[in-house]
């Protein structure tokens, strides 16, 4: 049974909205990084859905999604490395306690 494109799009938009909401409200940096992963996954859902429905070349969307997955992993690696380096100095992962630089 084929799931209609509209349903997938509603799902991916919801996922995107949850990700953006998470980025805006989470205090914990790791939580924010996870929310960014949600945003990237909503993009993947979109790309795969579109590559099945109305792409000129279906492979393109799937290749794009694989690249997005790879770069999400790279981003998470660099992100966690920076969080770890900061934690060693400041002993915190909460965004409101990371406040040396302002105005």
């Amino acid at each position: 049974m084929l799931i209609p494109l509209e349903h997938i799009l509603i799902f991916s938009t919801l996922l995107f909205a949850i990700g953006v909401y998470g980025v805006l409200v989470r205090r914990n940096v790791v939580g924010i990084l996870i929310s960014i992963e949600l945003i990237l996954n909503s993009v993947n859902v979109n790309l795969i859905a579109f590559s099945r429905s109305n792409a000129l070349d279906p492979v393109m969307g799937q290749v794009f999604a694989i690249f997005v997955i790879t770069l999400a992993a790279v981003g998470a690696t660099v992100g966690l490395a920076i969080v770890l380096a900061l934690y060693r100095i400041k002993r915190t992962v909460y965004t409101d306690e990371i406040n040396l630089l302002k105005w």
Binding site: V20, V23, V29, I32, L33, I36, I39, G75, V78, G79, I82, V83, A85, L86, I89, K90, T95, I98, L100, L101
Partner: peptide, 18 residues
Amino acid sequence: KNPQSKEAALKYLLFGST
């Protein structure tokens, strides 16, 4: 070991990835 530098990197990362 420079907290300013690390904090800048973290802010850049969060803004940039989002």
